[in-house]
Each structure stands twice: as structure tokens, then as C-alpha cells.
């Protein structure tokens, strides 16, 4: 007789036990189980191998698997902790946990810094900031002249680079975010608190009680 809730279906590469993931993140065991339902959906949308490929990530964000976007690339790269070109379940849960409403603001601020430190130098440099502004303009309907872009980047740099050495370090970033808290808005997904409601099928599949 078949059993649809068997562990067999969960032997996908990179699968990690929800109890362990819950102990290391802001999620409860039930929430990790619900995230597995979301993960299964995302990781089977193009290639059904239990791993999220970049095309699948892009498809989930834009409903278009070919849409290139600097920021989606950055998020994917940070989620792909092992740097093997795919997001495994454990990586997915640990990275999404940064966006949980209960996660300390300091973790969110550090993640955002890494996101914007395009060349992994430990600093956000002016050139990187300009590159990101241009990428944003490229993906939106906004048209700004190069002079206006230069002014925006200059003003931001003067404001953020309090030491005046031409680059923004983590300490300056923390101070800048404290003065501009709206910058952290997209680092919290209220949805993650309701994830068990969004993916209730985990209740059928759940192997662990919270």
C-alpha cells in the first residue's frame, strides 16, 4: 500500500532535518515544514531535481526565467552559500531566516551590506553604488540623466561615508541605516510569520510535532 507521507519523498539532495534548521534559525519546526512545501514548488518549476536553479529563482520573482536582474543575482549568490550554482533546502531556510520578522535587525543590516558589496571587498564603493543605481534604472521606467545619477550617488556617499575615505564600511553602513531605517523595509517579510497558513499541506506531511 502506498504512503504519500513517507520519508522517501524527502531524500532530495541538500535536504536537512526541520528540527535542526529550526534550532538554527528564527523558524519553528512547523514553519520549516511549510517552507519545504514552498521549496518543492520552486525547485521543480523548471528542473525537477529538488534544487533551486537560478532560472527557477528568476521565474519565481519575475514570472520570467530569462529576466536578468543584478539584485536577484546578488540574492541568489548570497543564498547559494556553497557557491555551487544552486540553492539547497538548508541554504534556502537559513537565508530566508534573515528576512523573518523575529530576526535581529543587526543580522538584516549585515546581510544588506553583503548584498551591496558587489565585489566582496568588505566595503561598498562608489563605483558599486553607481552600478546598482544604473541597474535599477535599467529595470524600471525611471529615466534620470547621468548628471542626476552622479548627484544622487555623490550626495549618498557624502552622507554615508562619514570617515571620508571614499568607501562605506560596515560601521558607516550601520550608522547610515540607523538614520535611514526605511532602507531595511525589504529585509523583513511579514509573510514568513504566516507561512504555515500559506502552505498548509505540511500538516499532512509533518513528521514532527512542535
Amino acid at each position: 500500500m502506498g504512503c504519500f507521507c513517507s520519508k522517501h519523498s524527502r531524500q532530495t539532495p541538500g535536504y536537512e532535518e526541520p528540527t535542526i534548521l529550526a534550532s538554527e534559525t528564527s523558524f519553528t519546526v512547523s514553519e520549516v515544514e511549510a517552507l519545504y512545501e514552498l521549496f518543492k514548488k520552486l525547485s521543480s518549476s523548471i528542473i525537477d531535481d529538488g534544487l533551486i536553479h537560478k532560472e527557477e529563482f528568476q521565474f519565481a520573482l519575475f514570472r520570467n526565467s530569462n529576466k536578468r536582474n543584478l539584485f536577484a543575482d546578488r540574492i541568489f549568490d548570497l543564498f547559494d552559500v556553497k557557491r555551487n550554482g544552486v540553492i539547497e533546502f538548508g541554504e534556502f531556510v537559513r537565508s530566508l531566516s534573515v528576512f523573518h520578522p523575529n530576526t535581529p535587525q543587526s543580522d538584516k543590516i549585515a546581510f544588506a551590506f553583503r548584498l551591496y558589496d558587489l565585489r566582496y571587498t568588505g566595503y561598498i564603493e562608489r563605483e558599486e553604488l553607481k552600478e546598482m543605481v544604473l541597474a535599477l534604472l535599467n529595470e524600471s521606467d525611471l529615466i534620470l540623466s547621468d548628471d542626476v545619477v552622479e548627484t544622487i550617488v555623490d550626495k549618498t556617499f557624502i552622507d554615508a561615508d562619514s570617515k571620508g575615505d571614499g568607501k562605506i564600511d560596515m560601521e558607516e553602513w550601520k550608522e547610515f541605516v540607523a538614520r535611514n531605517p526605511s532602507l531595511m523595509k525589504n529585509m523583513t517579510l511579514p509573510y514568513l510569520k504566516d507561512i504555515t497558513l500559506a502552505f498548509p499541506s505540511f500538516v499532512v506531511n509533518s513528521e514532527v510535532e512542535d
Binding site: 520573482l61 551591496y116 529595470e139 524600471s140 550617488v153 500559506a198
Partner: peptide, 25 residues
Amino acid sequence: KPAAMNAFELISTSQGLNLSSLFEK
């Protein structure tokens, strides 16, 4: 209005940073 924003505010409006799309059915 965008010209008055700081660069990071502008960047944070990117669709690529809006992960709530991942949860859309």
C-alpha cells in the same frame, strides 16, 4: 522625486529585492 532619494532608497525599490514574490501562488 527619485532625484531627491538617496541612492540606497532607490536601489531598495528593485523588483529583484522584493522576495515576497516568492510566496505568490
